[in-house]
Simulated scan of single mutants.
Amino acid sequence: MTDLIIEADGGSRGNPGIAGAGALVRNTDGEILATKAVPLGKASNNVAEYTGLIEGLKLAREIDPAASVEVLMDSKLVVEQMSGRWKIKHEDMKRLAAEAASILSPMQVTYTWIPRAKNGDADALSNEAMDASAAGTDWDPAASRVG
């Protein structure tokens, strides 16, 4: 049974380039419980995707550290690597994956790939983060279009 749903995304305008990550947590009724967007400065798309995952897991842990969590992402790479089906070869990705796996017990978390079209809220948050990154500012949750 899933208690919380994380939707996460990350992006980079250029690879590497201006990057940002976004995540949100929903309850099983679809209500958004928390959102976060993180401007990353210059980073790769994969670093941004993993950062979105990490931030989403942290939000879920703050809400309920004992919850069963389903992570929805449009990054096939992150979903497959975190599910253990694909090897992680790059050292930065190994570090980020280990950080993500340490936030909640891997027994609590499942990973599901979704098409980009179904990840609109997390994509919007990652774009807000990239906009803030490009402007050299922090993300303003009060100005967010999500939540």
Rank of each mutant, 00 (worst) to 15 (best):
S133I: 09
A34H: 11
A34Q: 12
H90P: 00
A117E: 15
E49C: 00
G20V: 10
L96N: 02
N27A: 12
R116F: 08
D121T: 09
A37E: 01
P39Q: 03
N46Y: 01
E128I: 08
G30V: 07
L33W: 01
E55P: 02
D123L: 03
I114K: 06
E128C: 10
S68F: 07
S44L: 06
Y50C: 00
D121P: 04
A19N: 11
V69F: 08
D123Q: 04
A67M: 11
E91I: 13
L57H: 00
A23H: 01
L72T: 07
S44R: 11
L33A: 00
A19Y: 08
I18Q: 13
V69G: 03
M73S: 15
Y50D: 00
A43S: 13
G10K: 01
L24Y: 04
G120I: 06
E31A: 14
V38L: 04
D121F: 13
S105L: 05
N119G: 06
L125E: 07
S68R: 14
V78L: 05
N127I: 12
T28E: 14
D64F: 12
V78W: 10
N127M: 11
M93A: 12
D123P: 02
P65E: 03
K58Y: 13
K76S: 14
N46I: 07
G120P: 07
S44D: 02
S133W: 02
V79D: 11
L77R: 03
L57F: 09
V109Y: 00
E128M: 11
I103G: 02
A43M: 09
S126M: 08
G41Q: 12
D74V: 02
T51Q: 13
R95K: 15
E31T: 15
A100K: 01
A135H: 07
L125A: 01
I18T: 15
E31G: 08
K94W: 01
A37H: 04
M107C: 09
S105Q: 02
R116W: 14
M82I: 05
M107V: 13
V38F: 03
A122N: 00
M107N: 15
S102R: 10
V109H: 06
A67L: 10
L40M: 15
P16G: 01
V69W: 05
